[in-house]
Design a binder for these strands. Sequence first.
DNA 1: GATGTCTGCCC
DNA 2: ATTCTGC
DNA 3: GCAGAATGGGCAGACATC
Length: 788
Amino acid sequence: MGGGSALETSAAAAATAAGTATPVAPSWEEAQRALLLPPSRYDPLRHACWAGGRPAPAPSYSSTPTTTPAAAGGPTPYAHVAACLAALESTTKRLAKEDALTNAFRAVLAGAADPRVDLVAVLYLLTGRIGPEYERLELNVGGATVGAALGAATGASGARLKQLYRELGDLGDVAQACRRTQSTLVAPAPLLAGRLLAQLRALAADKGTGVAARRQAAVLGLLRACREGEVKYLTRTLISNLRVGANWRSVLGPLGRAVLIHRRTQAAAAAAASSAAAAVGSSASVSAAPPPLPSKAELDAAASAVVAAYHLCPCFELLVPALLEDGPEGLERRCVLTPGVPLKPMLARICGGVADGLRQLGPGAPFLAEYKYDGVRAQIHLLPGGQVRIFSRNCEDRTEAFPDVCALVRAAAGLGATGGADGPEAAAGARAGDGDPRVGPSAREPPSATPRRHHQQQPTAATATVSLVLDAEVVAVEWVAAEAALAMAAAAAKAAAAAEAGVPAEEGGEGDGEGGDGEGPDGGRGAGGGGCVAPPYRLRAFQELATRSRGQVAEHEVTVQVCVFVFDLLPLRERRSLLPAALPRMSPGRVMTATAVEVQPTEPPQLQQQPGQQQAGGAAPAGRRGGRKGPPAAEAQGGAGAGASGSDEEEEGEEAAGGAIKRDYCEGLRDSVDVVPIGAWYGQGRKVKWFSPFLLAVYDPVSETFQSLCRCMSGFSDEFYTAARERLGAQIIPGPKPYYDTGERPSVWFEPTEVWELRGADLTLSPVHRAAAGRLHPGRGVGLRFPR
DNA sequence: GATGTCTGCCC
DNA sequence: ATTCTGC
DNA sequence: GCAGAATGGGCAGACATC
């Protein structure tokens, strides 16, 4: 509070100094409101909340503006970021959010001493990140660490913090609430965006004994340095939960717009200055009327240029310099696909079932129906040198965890299985080996230990060629002995016969969500047209693959073998028919194209030809299952992404044709389960006022116990939450009934008074849930995956 | 050394 | 992952 | 129709604690 009045005073002083109609630098709240002005009325010089590195408010520029705008400022204060976050949070309107972001970036461009550096920092801070996703850089700070630091910073007791948290449902709000009652003795230096980002990165880099204490101390220091509205957002940043209704996606368009506006303004100012100088030759003020905003079309073009560039090159350190130097128009040339930099994944549209999906694809349009494998998504880059890089669905670099995948892909591509270490540093020209794909301790050579820093390498013409980018699913496989393979083949044949006879038997109870070793869609099948020789492998469930180490794995340490199911080539979305050419040496159980059915709505389904593996009988019904039967929420992949409009022989109108109907909810698993809410937690954020999630249990008549099955939070409407809060609020009991069986510890327990119907996708063996305890696994119960 | 807590990341 | 909500 | 938030099960890894 002391700070508040001091700031008022300085604002008043600024007002006097400014004189005449020269505006006074706004307070933090005013700056926040100003950010919501339409860009046409926002003046970065007048509304920006800083100058000379001082926090808001301070004179935004001197009363005698003899300097150029760009030189007027200092480092961007974090207060500016916080003001923008507050502006974002203050509205749910998307256009208003875009305006706020655009204005905020313009302020940085106009007011920062080093806009190039500050813009990157502000971008990260506004999106709650500290680096590109593919650089393993994590704060490792969560609620516990911040909570403890908060206690130390404010003197609030743990109980008080807990109570506040229950009321507010957001640690940032708790911090803000605490701060109001806290008086700072000596105000530390104000937080600066660039420096804060560096501090956060240092925090992320710290490790070893005692980190927890060091982290907490660092967090404490940062919290203490906060002013005005900063604590709330700094706290949320620390726990990676900004929740202001904007994320990296929302920031890109405004970034393009802001840069375009700024460049126009600068050009106009330069022109005015030079003409004035030429005319009079004396100190004419540069503050001529700002030029009108670029046209909407121009602004939109700038926005989509940045969006497209970011998909190809999701790294602000690369994007921003290119943007500032060559403008949005130059991005297409400057930001190209860079080897080892993952592409942002395609956008997918949700549709309300298969019928809807087909309608979206276009009536009568042919499409591809693919299996949805239960593994992990992998974006696989095969670089010109023969090295491989593997990225997760979230663009995390997972190369080192999957040396076997690297080897398999190299082999499938016709390069030697021992082509060398992966990653650009490791030179190792791939030599063409015998191409025999081998899983096992044959290939090794540990991958480069040096983590690469992509943003240090500028894309150049030389490095811009990627030989191959694959989209694939990595699935755990189990190799089985020959006899077992024969048995499986026989079973598959029987199932196929049954299916042909019209029995809707689906896949004969396959897996049934038993979690354990359920066969995948075509596990154990694939026997060819006439003489059946089943490949000696079976697909395993996701849970098996999840045991893979996260860090560096040597190939001989791999315990769970995998098969790579390739389903797409990026970024051109060329037809899958190019896959066999790109990967001439695929091999069953190792690297395969994902099983798919080409559907011509007027003709019977035709199974896609697969290299190295003939498909027949058994797979067709399964394929039909994926394409035809009713997933309530299937997903059609559109040809978004990349913008690299290669558009070869693709007919227009068929743009979505590369899409696949995925996420099939197996018919057999659509059963619902009757469950009883036996406990709950208090909601967070939007759901503070309600119970969420609920702890749900099944009743076991044998043991006469309620065994927990899962927590559940989705599938409920807000009305349901409100009603449930009332009903169950009256059923709270002090502790669990003796006949409740669960490893969970919910905040509240209920009398068992209601029965709900629950749907889920899958079951897994659980360490905390107790359903069917002991029946599938000694000591482990069953949990429900994706309850809803 | 075993166990527990926290965090991040797969689905 | 899924689902709901507001623009 | 999109974007965003709020949540699920469960694993490994890194520390902290016993």
